[in-house]
Design a protein around this nucleic acid. Structure first.
Lengths: 269, 269
DNA sequence: GGCCGTGTTCCGCATAGAGAAACGCTGACA
DNA sequence: TGTCAGCGTTTCTCTATGCGGAACACGGCC
């Protein structure tokens, strides 16, 4: 016996945790879920999940479809994310610059930030091309196989880089960097050129370019990244885009309080 | 005695409910909250709120500031709203049309939907003017004093309209419609012209225009609305905008499966 | 240096929430 | 049209869970 639950922290609420995990069951591909489905996913009883969903529905975090009696996310979460966005500095400062970029290049551009050991898109502006890449706001991606991830990682501490390597570099496509040394070389290269590129490293046929964004502490906290089909994002095009992105990245960084040092690279104080 | 709590429904989780209410304490104006602040707002003990926040933080729904030990919303909610948006039909279908509008008129445009007895912004595209109106994604507004609210309400059932009146028409500015008859006349006018206008009815100096959006059931489920300072949104300008909005509204409605009837207004079946 | 005011931890008791199982619906199938 | 399997919902019972009060630790301010 004992508690079968995982290490029953006295400081957390298991019922709340279950509810949050239930919310996380919803994905872009599966936006509508039934009780049983969620119960199985979480290993909980149907009645428990039912109570969770009823409560979530009461507060507008999910919506019960009157026909199918299945659930989808509700508008309360929209409201919360609106609050985040209007207070996330990098978002506020970046938005217009990204809009300008899209109207000039007509390629989809994102703003990504570091969260734990992933990148998270905090802003996305779509191009008008019919060929779309499936990403969305809040989408998490690994650090080692995306241009935004590599850009951010390149400027983190050695400890952080080692930790990422220790956690493993899963192979997503034949192009994914899976060896530590190869990754380190790539990061070194990013530090010198100031931008990162991914050619089908996360998904076959999807290329991307990214540049770092720094805040007033001079730390790299995010990246501006353009993602698109390999057919459009050729090496030449990506280089051209990289130049523009670099000036956008610098502008956003400046607005976040970053000021460029005169010379003296790698000289603290 | 008895339970002091409100009617202790056997089917809801009070701890979860408290957590959801805690999340809702965060607003655009107050994006960073302390334990005590939340505890007071909800009438709960500090220990309870602390446990709630710890759990929320573990799942990334809030973030604990290491310096101040206060909390702000986390990126997990962004992720959820990204999922909603990529699956909310009205959002998907409307986005590009709104972008086009902004690039032509350079005024901020929103997509609003009906939720309970409020409108909720599910999309917002900002203009580049320095004078901004403070709204954000997920922002709720009353039905009787916004152009989007009145547009939507105009096409709801009489029961719904009566219920809105019964719930009261709070005066927000000197211009707010506060009398039932006046509101009904305004709604009638909206039904004939096909668009609604608000001149400082919600906030002094803020004007707006809106048109309805219908889905395949022919019900009005939302509105496209332009919001801006009175100085720019003159009567003449609003009329011009209304015309464009109407074609956008129709286009979105069509994409949601609405097809226009030949003649026969108000003739069901 | 004592004083608020935080956020955090501890603890014991009552109740809120977990699961098993019964219920009622709806849609598939023959 | 009858049967059945699957769903979401409800009920019930028991105990682990999560509640509040109080103690603790920090930190900024007169």
């Amino acid at each position: 016996m004992m508690q079968e639950q995982q290490a029953n922290d006295y400081r957390t609420l298991s019922s709340l945790k279950n509810a949050l995990l239930a919310l996380k069951c919803f994905t872009a591909d599966e936006p509508e879920l039934g009780i049983t489905q969620i119960a199985q996913a979480l290993g909980l009883s149907k009645s428990t999940v039912h109570r969770i969903m009823t409560t979530l529905a009461e507060e507008g975090f999910v919506r019960r479809d009157e026909q199918t009696h299945r659930y989808r996310l509700g508008l309360s979460v929209l409201s919360l994310s609106g609050i985040i966005m209007s207070n996330l500095e990098i978002y506020r400062e970046g938005q217009h610059l990204l809009e300008e970029f899209v109207s000039r290049f007509d390629e989809t551009v994102h703003l990504a930030v570091l969260e734990d050991y992933s990148t998270v898109y905090v802003s996305k502006l779509e191009c008008k091309h019919p060929v779309k890449i499936l990403t969305h706001l809040g989408k998490k991606n690994p650090l080692h196989c995306t241009s935004s991830g590599k850009t951010i990682l390149a400027f983190q501490s050695d400890d952080m880089i080692e930790e990422v390597i220790r956690r493993g570099l899963p192979q997503m496509t034949p192009n994914t960097i899976t060896h530590a040394e190869e990754l380190k070389a790539a990061l070194e290269n990013i530090r010198t050129t100031g931008y990162a590129i991914s050619r089908s490293e996360l998904r076959e046929g999807v290329h991307s370019v990214a540049v770092p964004v720094r805040d007033y502490t001079r730390q790299v906290i995010g990246a501006v990244t353009v993602v698109g089909p390999a057919s459009r994002l050729t090496d030449g095009k990506m280089k051209a885009i990289a130049r523009t992105l670099q000036s956008i990245g610098k502008e956003i960084s400046n607005r976040l309080g970053y000021y460029e040092r005169r010379q003296s690279i790698g000289n603290p104080t």
